[in-house]
């Protein structure tokens, strides 16, 4: 049985990775799961300088999921290179660094600082965070803006780049094609869906930011649909995510066209989710006599 998959020339031992922002830089969850088991660890988004993030409350529970408006708090690339990369290098897993920025220059500065870090296998470019007011999502909601920034990053990046797409768009296929045309090496989706919750007793917003990104099992059908549409619009490998809680969920994304999958909000619910999904995928492959997991990619009829 072969669970290996390939993303832009990088071989992962299995298709299961972590959703950016839900797993820290691996350290916090290394008490619960053996990071060596994971296909890849995708880090919390990192910018060129430290970001303080949004005021609290930053998280709120909603039916079958949650809203967050963390605002991409992060310690900046310099601390990240000194602390988080050396930590992750101890493990036999691929390191994917998620990069955020407010301007094109912000992104490029981080990309350049990571160029001499061969331990970083792939870069995931977050152009779709709904919680940062300046820039960021603006790059991910218009096809021409996405095309432009993808092209600029592609020119500077040493590693293959994964463009992380926003679901808060009219036509996901158009966005996928724009990223592909500009030289993206892979796509990941979906980022969170913009949502809102109101506390009716206090008559105030549940989040200080008013709006937040919704994640969790409740968004899965939307995510599966968008992964299917994006995967069929481009030739690039697609990393599917959005509410994956079980191996069955992960298989659904793979059948829809995803080459790999990420576990996001469910890490908060069950810190062992990633490992359980990996074991469950192997069980599925045994049950249905699937020799090679790549045979399942896009195999929905």
């Amino acid at each position: 049985m072969d669970t290996q998959v390939n993303i832009a020339g990088v071989t992962l031992k299995n298709p299961v990775m972590t959703g950016s922002g839900t797993f820290g830089s691996g350290m916090e969850y290394s008490e619960f799961v053996d990071l060596n088991c994971l296909g890849a660890v995708v880090t919390k988004g990192v910018a060129n300088v430290p970001w303080p993030g949004n005021p609290t409350p930053r998280v709120a529970e909603v039916y079958g999921g949650m809203l967050n408006a963390i605002g991409l708090q992060n310690p900046g690339i310099d601390v990240f290179l000194e602390r988080d990369i050396p930590f992750l290098k101890q493990y036999d897993t691929k390191i994917i660094v998620n990069i955020c920025g407010k301007t094109e220059e912000d992104y490029l500065e981080v990309v350049e600082k990571l160029a001499d870090e061969p331990a970083v296998a792939l870069l995931e470019i977050n152009v779709s965070c709904p919680n940062v007011k300046e820039g960021a999502i603006a790059f991910g909601q218009k096809a021409d803006a996405l095309y432009h920034i993808t092209g600029q990053i592609r020119k500077k990046a040493r590693q293959p780049i994964i463009m992380k797409l926003s679901p808060n768009v009219t036509d996901i296929a158009e966005m996928a094609r724009a990223a592909e045309a500009a030289g993206a090496d892979a796509l990941s989706l979906i980022n969170t869906l913009t949502g809102m919750k109101i506390d009716i007793h206090r008559r105030c917003f549940a989040l200080a930011n008013k709006t937040g990104g919704m994640s969790g099992p409740a968004i899965k059908p939307v995510a599966v649909r968008m992964v299917y549409q994006a995967a069929h619009a481009v030739k690039l490998p697609v990393i599917g995510m959005g509410g994956i809680a079980t191996a069955e969920d992960a298989i659904e994304f793979i059948l829809a066209g995803a080459t790999a999958v990420s576990i996001g909000a469910m890490n908060f619910v069950d810190p062992y989710t990633t490992v359980k999904v990996i074991r469950g995928i192997e069980d599925y492959m045994r049950t249905y006599n699937v020799e090679n997991i790549t045979d399942l990619i896009g195999a929905v009829e």
Binding site: G21, Y29, F32, T56, P57, R58, V59, N68, Q73
Partner: peptide, 8 residues
């Protein structure tokens, strides 16, 4: 557990 940065 310190990962999500929700409770600062």
């Amino acid at each position: 557990v310190g990962a999500c940065l929700g409770c600062v």
